[in-house]
Design a protein around this nucleic acid. Structure first.
Length: 881
RNA sequence: GGGCGGUUAGCUCAGCUGGUAGAGUAUCGGUCUUACACACCGACUGUCAGGGGUUCGAGUCCCUUACCGCCCACCA
């Protein structure tokens, strides 16, 4: 027997172990069934599972478990990402506590140290995936630094190099002076900040006047090699080509013209520092300017010749000194505050320095068109609104800087010969220079951007390039489930690589889910400390509660505001599932499944009704999941279980269960069937509690719900007429309950009721099912259209049937008058809106005939109800005198 | 400067192809009715942001205004 309240901890632990030990989620390659596959977006090894991961994984798990139920051969591959910068930073911080820096260890020892760290902590995040109940195949767990993934990386790199799609070159890149590495464009966060715009006067060398430039970065002026204006700017007409004296440096630089300059901004006069600004870099090349570097890789002033006395200062110190000096010597014309955005490192928030260096690039601009064309024909994006964003990014893509000056990552498979300078790019480590035979080859010190290996994830995790079996069966994957924040970092790049190397897109569909925010709508982050730790929630409320909450809130294209209260609320639901099951167990045979009954020919109206509704719910859930409407799927089963199965059906069969007989046998089998199927419908969302209950059902002991098929469809159980008749009985019961509650009659007091049916049919229906009326706790029921209505009574009308409750003794008569008046008021309000609608000539002529007809019927029914209630009220008032 | 999303009950949010506004939570009243107080029965609350349009009919489609939020962009 199950315990009284559901205690998730022990149950979850057991099932987790069971699924892992039994390898339940390792697909049988020889089994039939359409393949269905997903690769998990690999969380960073440094990470701790946050609520966003929990959502991401819950949704994937729902899809996978559902697909399994539908008979598909399902593979869900788990894994983690080595997360170059992030992980290196974490380990460097740990070293710093020991007073060491990575240089103190040297490259090899440092990498060894990172691996140790990974072994120790990298498993943490996997444990959290397990805790959530994700039905991944642990035998295929992958890590982006695994040997076979490293081979994939090398092969891809070499091939792209040979095809001219990877190249090496000297460019201005985003440089983080703290992480000491280049960053890709999209690894730079733009943060709004309040800065200064300094106006500085540059005099002409011939003493014929001056121009004034405006800049936010005066420290870079030491590297200025020109000043630029717009060719059409009349203010500077005739001046282009003249020489200016660069203040402080006292160097001559030319005044040039280029259409790039915005005449509206500042003074319309731009200082050009080709080595320290990406735009100026372009101008420098276009105009053949000199390139003078004045800031080094640490963000300090360098180049004694150019920087002079400022050499060695940090960029910030230098800025201050230069401004002071300009102010002192009168070249500073104006200072004004300016809000602008500043590029920062997405990992450490340090201000990015545009920096000229030699880097490796992927010619993304050449690969983008194919990736663009894949959507929407080969890849469908849900919700569709992201398609535009995807296009927009690909249309404006620039080549992707993939080299990082880090130690942790896939080292670039390129070597240079110290003797002849030959560049060798090769899958295997070369032992000598093919050109001069030198054996002292030096490997490029850089590693690849983390996202380079991530881009190969859908096929590298399936064994490419070595093994083919998984690829043949499971590539392309069925769907990619991810949050929008990595649409660019990851999704678009996977498409490019998949197309290029597999000749096929990596996934058929992309489902973009919401971002989880806190109760105030802010992005959850460690720095804000507003995160909800899924681990805590699982311990407190159980994984099922967390999962169901996430599913219920996962409406498409919306952010989710998460709070603990909501998870607590859904824990009630899990408990409800548990207790409904306990009730069922108490009413079913203990050691065997109940006797089978033909479900198409059950007699009880309640049985016909619940079976009919069940059919509808099955279809609803299936369609909701088909369209990634997780919230609808969760909601429809939730309501069915709670508001129909528990609130009505279980109450209705209590009478059947009291004595042995046909009614009990029928109810037992229907109860058994409906409960089992509800469990199946809920299982993808709340796997643990459903597994536990299933295992304890008679006839199911020792079986695993995770391997059971989706409930069969039973068209013979669809009985809308019966279902509607049952609703009528329910409405009558509710009407009596409402009267009882509003007149403050004790629940324990048994009422007598007179029902005056509106038709022969109604009369027969009520007569046949009068036992159900017991749910309203009654003493005596008379069903008679001609019955005399007692004077001291309260009343209501349900589908034309008058419900008259006898009031004897201590009842507040005023209360009944008030209640009736209110009730009539409601009817009148409905009549008014409906009447206006019907009175509209356009409605009758243009609306569908069916609708007009049903509205007319409704109107007539309301009129009837109103008339009957007025009559009852009148009689009641007469009784009061 | 482009693009996207939001504005519905006190709070948090659902409302698919236009056809009587919904759930949870909160509040109020009543119940230990033999699965569940993590429960049961009942009640209350809405100019669906403002304005205009299309339509017989709009929370739902179109335009517009306001406020909030996000993304992208080489804003010196």
């Amino acid at each position: 027997m199950l315990s009284k309240a559901y205690e998730p901890q022990e149950v979850e632990k057991r099932w987790r172990r069971h699924w892992e030990e039994e390898k339940t989620f390792t697909p049988d390659m020889s089994a039939p069934g359409e393949p269905y596959s997903i690769v998990i977006p690999p969380p960073n090894v440094t990470g701790i599972l946050h609520i966003g991961h929990a959502l991401n994984q819950t949704l994937q798990d729902i899809l996978c478990r559902h697909a399994r139920q539908k008979g598909k051969k399902v593979l869900w591959i788990p894994g983690t990402d080595h997360a170059g910068i992030a992980t290196q930073n974490v380990v460097e911080r740990a070293l710093a506590k020991e007073g060491k820096r990575r240089a103190d260890l040297g490259r090899e020892a440092f990498i060894e140290r990172v691996w140790e760290w990974k072994k120790k902590y990298g498993g943490q995040i996997l444990g959290q995936i397990k805790a959530l109940g994700a039905s991944v195949d642990w035998t295929r767990e992958a890590f982006t630094m695994d040997d076979n993934l490293a081979r994939a990386v090398r092969k891809v790199f070499v091939q792209l190099y040979e095809e001219g799609l990877i190249y090496k070159g000297k460019y201005i890149v985003n440089w983080c002076p703290r992480c000491h590495t280049a960053l890709a464009d999209d690894e730079v966060d733009h943060v709004d900040s309040q800065g200064m715009l300094w106006h500085i006067r540059y005099d002409f060398a011939d003493g014929s006047g001056s121009v004034t430039i405006a800049t936010t970065r005066p420290e870079t002026m030491l590297g200025d090699t020109a000043v630029c204006v717009h060719p059409d700017d009349e203010r500077y007409a005739g001046l282009v080509g003249k020489k200016l004296i660069l203040p402080i440096a006292e160097r001559e630089i030319p005044l040039i013209a280029d259409r790039y300059v915005d005449m509206e901004f500042g003074t319309g006069c731009l200082k050009v520092t080709p080595c320290h600004d990406p735009n100026d870099w372009k101008l420098g090349h276009a105009h053949g300017l000199e390139f003078i570097q004045v800031i080094d890789d640490n963000g300090n002033m360098c180049n004694e010749e150019a920087s002079g006395r400022f050499t060695g200062m940090s960029r910030e110190e230098c800025r201050k000194s230069i401004v002071e000096e300009l102010r002192a010597n009168g070249h500073l014309v104006k200072e004004e505050p300016l809000s602008h955005s500043v590029g920062c490192c997405y990992r450490c928030k340090t201000v990015i320095e545009p920096y000229v260096s030699t880097q490796w690039f992927v010619a993304a601009s050449k690969m983008a068109p194919a990736a663009r064309a894949a959507v929407p024909d080969k890849i469908r994006i849900y919700p569709d609104s992201w398609t535009k964003t995807y296009y927009n990014w690909l249309d404006n893509i620039r080549d992707w800087c993939i080299s990082r000056q880090l130690w942790w990552g896939h080292r670039i498979p390129a070597w240079t010969c110290p003797d002849c300078g030959e560049l060798i790019v090769s899958e295997s480590d070369p032992d000598r220079c093919p050109k001069c035979g030198c054996t002292r080859l030096e490997q490029d010190p850089d590693v690849l951007d983390t996202w380079f290996s991530s881009a190969l994830w859908p096929f590298s995790t399936m064994g490419w390039p070595d093994k083919q079996e998984d690829l043949r069966t499971f590539y392309p994957t069925s769907v990619l489930v991810t949050a929008f924040d990595i649409l660019f970092f990851w999704v678009a790049r996977m498409v490019m690589m998949g197309q290029h190397f597999m000749g096929e897109v990596p996934f058929r569909e992309v489902y973009i889910h919401a971002l989880v925010r806190d109760a105030q709508g802010r992005k959850m982050s460690k720095s804000l400390g507003n995160g909800i730790d899924p681990q805590d929630m699982i311990e407190k409320y159980g994984a099922d509660s967390l999962r169901f909450t996430l599913a219920a809130f996962a409406a498409m294209g919306r952010d989710i505001r998460m709070s603990e209260e909501r998870i607590e609320g859904y824990r009630h639901f899990i408990n409800k599932v548990w207790n409904a099951s306990r009730f069922a167990l108490m009413n079913l045979p203990e050691d065997r499944a109940p006797e089978v009954v033909d479900l198409g020919t059950v007699k009880g109206l309640h049985n016909k009704w619940i079976l009919s509704r069940l059919e509808e719910v099955k279809e609803e859930e299936d369609q909701a999941l088909e369209g990634y409407r997780f919230n609808d799927a969760a909601q429809c089963v939730y309501k069915f279980l709670w508001n129909e199965f528990c609130d009505w059906y279980l109450e209705l069969i209590k009478a059947d269960m009291r004595e042995e007989g046909e009614a009990k046998k029928e109810a037992q089998f229907v109860l058994y069937t409906v409960l089992k199927e509800i469990l199946l419908l809920l299982h993808p969302m709340i796997p643990f509690v459903t597994a536990e209950v299933w295992d304890s059902l008679p006839g199911c002991e020792g079986t695993d719900i995770a391997t059971q098929p989706y409930p069969e469809i039973r068209p013979q159980c669809r009985k809308e007429k019966d279902a509607d008749e049952m609703s009528f009985v329910q409405e009558v019961i509710s009407a009596i309950r409402t009267i009882r509650a509003e007149l403050d009659i004790k629940p324990s007091y048994r009422l007598s009721v007179v029902l005056r049916p509106a038709s022969e049919e109604q009369a027969a229906l009520l007569e046949a099912n009068r036992g159900f009326l017991e749910l309203a706790r009654l003493e005596k029921v008379s069903i008679d259209a001609g019955a005399h209505a007692p004077k001291a009574s309260a009343s209501n009308v349900v589908r034309g049937c008058e419900v008259i409750v006898l009031l004897t003794g201590a009842v507040d008569f005023q209360a009944e008058v008030a209640r009736l008046t209110k009730e009539i008021g409601k009817v009148e309000k409905d009549l008014a809106t409906l009447g206006a609608k019907l009175a509209n000539p356009g409605f009758a002529s243009r609306a569908p005939a069916e609708l007009v007809e049903s509205e007319k019927t409704r109107h007539a029914d309301l009129e009837d109800k109103k008339a009957k209630m007025l009559a009852l009220q009148k009689r009641f008032m007469e009784a009061m005198g």
